[in-house]
Computed example of a mutant assay.
Amino acid sequence: MRAAVLVEGRSDSAALERLAARRGRDLAAEGVAIVGMGGATNIRRYLELLGPRGQGLALAGLCDAAEVGYFRRGLAAVGLGSDLSLAQMRARGFHVCVADLEDELIRALGTDAVEAVIADRGELNSFRTMQRQPAQRDRPLEAQLRRFLGTRGGRKIAYAPALVDALDLARVPAPLDGVLAAV
């Protein structure tokens, strides 16, 4: 292995693996591993294990906007830069989703396309039921979609590659393309 992409969880891994395949990349053959860390709070441990003080791999990463602080502190702790701006993080291969992976994919696809993916998976009625709940009725459609994707265990993981499959490759969210381009 020559490089690792550090991601928060399994849905991020599934999305990036599918995107790499759609871009014609065989990450395993290239010596690139996508490593789900089980949450952003584990970044320092993985940076220490796989980075310059550990296995010496080339590193990149992807996180949600709310988790940037963990990534910044982890990068600083292993000597990869302190008080990094988002641009400096990107230059080092660490990319940040505006809110999260699902938000990036929903914005890139548009709500109609996301609803079509939900329909293709036979869950449109479940989504409509969720939309009628009092807590959801007045929320924007994008927020309802994000909530639906996160409501049942495993749903985010199952939908991540399906949403990537629906993407026009000319409209891939910048953080996803950026992190793969870094390795």
Rank of each mutant, 00 (worst) to 15 (best):
V117E: 11
K156F: 08
A143Y: 03
A166S: 06
G61W: 02
P161V: 05
P52G: 08
R45E: 13
D64S: 12
A113T: 12
M130R: 13
V68T: 12
T129D: 14
V98T: 02
A119Q: 08
R155A: 04
D103F: 00
F148V: 06
L49M: 12
R44D: 15
G56P: 07
D64H: 01
A87D: 15
L50M: 14
S126H: 04
D165L: 09
M37V: 05
L141H: 11
M37E: 05
E48F: 09
L47R: 10
Q55Y: 14
R139L: 14
R92Q: 01
A91P: 01
L145N: 10
L101H: 02
Q88K: 10
A119I: 02
I106W: 04
R90N: 12
C63T: 07
A91D: 13
T151Y: 13
A60V: 00
G39Q: 06
Q131H: 04
G93T: 00
L145Y: 02
V78C: 02
L109V: 10
V78W: 11
L49R: 14
D120V: 00
R128F: 13
C63S: 09
H95T: 03
R53C: 14
I43L: 15
L105Y: 00
A162M: 09
R72I: 04
L124I: 11
G150Y: 07
S126G: 00
V114R: 00
R107Y: 00
L145I: 06
P161K: 06
A162V: 11
E142V: 04
D100A: 04
R147D: 03
G79M: 08
F148P: 10
R137V: 10
V114Y: 09
G56D: 14
R44H: 15
L57W: 15
P140E: 07
T129H: 13
S126T: 02
L75Y: 10
T41R: 15
E123C: 06
F127P: 07
R128H: 15
E104A: 04
A77G: 03
L86R: 11
V96E: 09
A119L: 06
L163K: 10
L149P: 08
R90I: 00
A60K: 03
Q144W: 08
G39T: 04
E104N: 02
S82W: 11
L101Q: 00
R147C: 01
Q133W: 11
G154T: 08
G56Y: 14
S82E: 15
G154N: 08
L59M: 06
S82F: 11
M89Q: 06
A87H: 13
A60L: 06
G122C: 01
R147E: 12
G38T: 00
D168F: 10
P140W: 08
Y46C: 07
Q144L: 03
L62G: 00
R137Q: 05
G150T: 01
R90Y: 04
G36F: 05
R146M: 10
L141A: 01
L141I: 04
L57Y: 14
A160C: 03
F127H: 00
A162F: 07
A58H: 14
L62R: 05
D100Y: 00
A158I: 01
A135Y: 13
E67N: 14
D64F: 00
S85Y: 03
A77F: 06
V164S: 01
L124N: 05
T151N: 13
G69D: 15
A162K: 09
A108F: 05
E142F: 01
R90W: 07
G110M: 09
R121K: 08
